[in-house]
Design a protein around this nucleic acid. Structure first.
Lengths: 216, 216
DNA sequence: TAGATTGTTAATCGATTAACAATC
DNA sequence: TAGATTGTTAATCGATTAACAATC
């Protein structure tokens, strides 16, 4: 139920960091970039980088590395970042402001077209030039803007309700920043973004490093 | 180099979502909660939940499940969330505002004490009651507030410079929201938080679901 | 040529899942 | 007692790493 397995998920998660670095190399007019170089920069194993890049279909040139321009194109295509996606954000709070203001996303095809909030003081306004509407207008506006993705940044308490409205509007992909596990139809994809899980990792790593705790 | 392996990292990342649910059960006056129930709610396998909970040291009662209160205490202790940590945030932009305003974190021991920014218009002000100082004051303020963690929300271009200042101030743990891989001394822990990698996952999953693309 | 780097095939490692006896 | 649930031990699965021939 709503649990489609993505093969090579860890590889996919690493691709954006490679893309970043390769783009930099491109800006510096490099024609080729080697897996060894990428690995060194990102503190990974060269073999891992080569395996990851293999999924894009680009073949490298022994001794030189991978051709920069085709590699950028291939990664972007593999990730679907070469296609524009219209996106709505549900909840017009601090996090929405941060996300809509993050220019990086625009360069990856993410095009914010509308925000929704129930606060009458916010409705009619904008965040980073994205117009804010009432949640009741979602169905209409999603169709009008042909939105394909909804970003959820509402409080946990209204997460499921917001998700239901999103689903009702016909959107099939949700990027969920709330810590609520949503109940969704099988054909709706959901990516859970949980900041507390990263925080948990940091805390445990701190404990490991801390002599007071590693002793026991 | 700066790559300490955390065993059972996936388990640790799942613990916060368990905690959430268990807290809810507690609020509803449940004395026990079963692994089966947690698994159903979060769309996981019961055996996985049991394995994950085992790392907290709590033993369950067959037929009943796990005792709610001790389990909450144990998870919080395991994650180090029962200890208060003073935290500074570097960069006083939209993302800092979102993070400092996120109440959830406070309940996990995360105590924002100061923010740093180079914008003269921001210095002297506050975000969510957190005072904003110049980056030049970092060393002094970190010591004054006894900060243990630095959250990096600056633009990529100044990420390494900010990190260097953080390290110089004596902080040993960095939560890095920039997409720059930082060069850090071995004794400094860093948790990389990359929003684009979650976005990459969502895009690939959308492609898998999309009949136009699954055909090929 | 010599040497760095690739891509392939195999080995290892760790995480997930299965099976099942123990137990309340 | 019967049945749901736990915890342990073993099996499976997938991701990472190693080894090495191929190549520019």
């Amino acid at each position: 139920m709503n649990k489609l397995k993505i093969p090579a998920a860890p590889s996919i998660r690493r691709l954006p960091s490679y893309l970043n670095l390769i783009r930099q190399a491109h800006a510096e007019n490099y024609e080729f970039i080697s897996g060894t170089f990428i690995a060194n920069e990102l503190h990974l194993e060269p073999i891992q980088v080569r395996k990851d890049l293999a999924i894009t279909g680009i073949v490298g040139k022994p001794k030189c590395g991978y051709p920069v321009v085709p590699l950028i194109t291939a990664i972007e295509h593999f990730l679907g970042w070469d296609a524009k996606k219209n996106v709505v954000v549900v909840g017009a709070g601090n996090l929405s402001t941060a996300l809509t203001g993050y220019q990086e996303f625009r360069h990856h095809g993410l095009n914010f077209v509308a925000a929704f909030d129930n606060d009458p003081k916010k409705i009619g306004g904008t965040i980073h030039n994205v117009p804010i509407f009432s949640l009741d207008e979602m169905c209409v506006k999603v169709k009008e803007f042909e939105a394909q993705i909804a970003v959820l940044t509402v409080p946990s308490s209204s997460a499921q309700d917001s998700a239901d409205r999103v689903v009702a509007s016909g959107i099939k992909a949700i990027w969920n920043f709330t810590n609520t596990k949503l109940k969704l139809p099988d054909d709706v994809t959901c990516q859970q973004e949980d900041l507390t899980s990263g925080y948990a990792m940091l805390c445990v790593m701190m404990g490991e490093n801390n002599p007071k705790r590693t002793k026991e």
